[in-house]
Computed example of a mutant assay.
Amino acid sequence: MSPVTVVINKILLGWIAFGAGFAVAGGFIAFISLIGIVTRLAGITKTADHIPIYENSMAMGILLFNLLSLYQPVFSWIFPAAGYSIMYLSSLFTGIFAGCLAGALAEVVNIIPIFSRRVKLRKGFPYMVKAAALGKCIGCLIQFYLFNII
C-alpha cells in the first residue's frame, strides 16, 4: 500500500470510530439516564447542578475509549512508566464506574429484595452486599491475572 492509501485508511477509520462512538455514547447515556445513576450519584454527593457536565464527560469518555480500543496506542513514549500508570488509573476508574453501574442497575430492578425473599434471607443484608462486592473484585483480579493485563 502506498503511504497516501495508509493515511486515507487511517482517516476513514478515525471517522468511522468517531461516528460509532457517537452512536454508542448516545445509547449508553440514554441507558444511564434511564436508570438514574447520574442523578443518584449527584444527589448523594450534593452536586446536582453539575449533572450536564457529568453526562457530557461520560459521553466524551466513551468516545475516547472507543478510539483507544480501535487504534491501541502505546503510552510508553510519553515517559517510560506512563504506560502502566495510565493503565492502572484507567482500570481503577473503569472499575469504580462498573461497580456504580451494576449497583444502580441492581437497585432499579430490585434484585436484592427479590433474591432475599426467594432464599428466605432475614438477616445479613450487609454481608450479602459485601460478599457480592468482594466476589466481583476477586473475579476481576483473577481475570486480569489470567489474561496478563496486570
Rank of each mutant, 00 (worst) to 15 (best):
T94S: 14
G95P: 06
G95K: 10
G95I: 10
I96H: 00
F97H: 04
A98H: 00
G99V: 03
C100W: 00
L101W: 02
L101M: 11
L101T: 01
A102P: 03
G103Q: 14
G103D: 15
A104S: 15
A104D: 05
A104W: 04
L105N: 02
L105A: 06
A106E: 05
A106W: 08
E107N: 12
V108S: 03
V108Y: 12
V108L: 02
V108F: 11
V109S: 10
N110M: 06
N110E: 12
I111V: 15
I112D: 12
P113W: 13
P113N: 13
P113K: 11
I114F: 14
F115S: 10
F115W: 13
S116Y: 09
R117L: 08
R117Y: 07
R118A: 13
L121W: 13
R122E: 14
R122I: 07
R122P: 02
K123C: 05
K123F: 10
G124H: 09
G124E: 07
Y127K: 04
Y127G: 06
V129C: 10
V129D: 06
V129Y: 05
K130Y: 08
A132D: 00
A133Q: 03
A133V: 07
L134N: 07
G135T: 06
G135I: 01
G135F: 02
K136C: 01
C137Q: 09
C137A: 15
C137G: 04
G139F: 03
C140M: 12
C140R: 07
C140D: 08
L141S: 03
